[in-house]
Design a protein around this nucleic acid. Structure first.
Lengths: 206, 206
DNA sequence: TTTTCGACTGAAAAATCTTTTTAGTCGAAA
DNA sequence: TTTCGACTAAAAAGATTTTTCAGTCGAAAA
């Protein structure tokens, strides 16, 4: 870290507070206008500071954006983790994992005003979100799989194999979602999650 | 059709021959240089005719391109249909279907000099190919599923449900393929096809 | 009648040049 | 330690000109 190391607690707290206010302001602005249209001056003005001040707290615009995306993903993750926790079997956990993921991400995209057609053109957004997301998702997913293997609910396959399968499933659902968006035909999607998860689990058991 | 209707067999044959030579030349050129960089004059020169002559046989550049893509896909389809035919159970059929699809399409992409990173930028190519592909793929796929249902190999689900599941699986494999391409890590892909197909089938049976 | 082509058009793409915007730096001030 | 005004360089946006090329048309060749 190249930031000034806080020797006093008070000063650390103040710095943290300002770093926080930058993120809060940036998050709101990015949601409304997107990465490209929000300038550092916009963010600075929003917290009543000059542009150069931002560089005292963050070393680049990208760092700010990444921090915001990290927070967005964090919120999704909390939602997912809670849903997964409340499920009892690995099968149920996987189901709610997939469903919550679909719903939460869709909500986030809507928040940023991104509709299906634009998803691909908003590369910078999806890319940052994806990076941040993938890392945390596998932690959650691996937890579920370990659980299923410990309880004997998942069959003879290794965690790596199971993870590959679930990856394929999730990627497939994503592809399906895009396809459905094209036809404005979402009804098929969520039932498919259930059928697919159950199929996979039963397949793995046998 | 706005083309001159052939009243004589001989004239029809000559017209067909020229239409064919256009496609052959165009196919070679498109493979080397891509849709955008090949002009109608290039194609015309390749068959020793003037540009305007092409319009006597095809009504637009797109029609030529579509015809070429249709031929490419046709070749893939023949390969797939043969592989599927030689398999005996629905499970095996689905496996070779997926595997042949992955391999054949990868081969075609290589032929057109399209590497993973460019796939998205070559929208015109993938779009035309996809359209032509999807239609024929579902025919083949539905055949396999009907077979599995008739022989009782596939369980209680309706063909529509099964098709949705297989769609998710294929779309997932595609996503996985892209991911693997990023890491240059293909080994995981083909084994996954087998595991995934078996899982699905066993899941559907239960 | 069937097939070919040269000459033309319009619209879009490419290339060129100019102007504006803005991420990031720096040194001074609070 | 924290803030900011003034600056830079590089890229984006705009404006303008030039080139390319799909597609048309009417006449000529076969």
């Amino acid at each position: 870290m190249s930031y000034p190391t806080a020797t006093l607690l008070a000063s650390a707290t103040k710095e943290d507070a300002l770093r926080e206010s930058v993120i809060v302001a940036a998050q709101r602005l990015f949601q409304h206008y997107g990465l490209a249209k929000v300038t550092l001056e916009d963010i600075a003005k929003a917290i009543g500071k000059g542009k150069s001040t931002l560089y005292y707290y963050y070393k680049s615009k990208e760092e700010i954006f990444t921090a915001v995306m990290d927070r967005e993903i964090g919120e999704v993750m909390v939602e997912m983790a809670q849903a997964v926790e409340s499920a009892t079997t690995a099968e149920e956990k996987l189901c709610v994992f997939s469903l919550t993921k679909l719903r939460a991400l869709r909500k986030k995209l809507a928040l940023y005003g991104i509709v299906c057609k634009e998803v691909n053109s908003q590369a910078e957004f999806t890319c940052a979100m994806r990076q941040s997301y993938m890392k945390r998702e596998s932690v959650l997913l691996r937890g579920i799989l370990r659980f299923g293997i410990e309880t004997g609910e998942l069959g003879r396959l290794s965690p790596t194999d199971v993870e590959a399968l679930v990856f394929v499933m999730l990627s497939g659902l994503h592809g399906m979602e895009l396809e459905m968006m094209g036809n404005n035909n979402f009804e098929m999607l969520e039932p498919a999650v259930g059928i697919l998860t159950r199929s996979l689990i039963h397949g793995l058991k046998s």
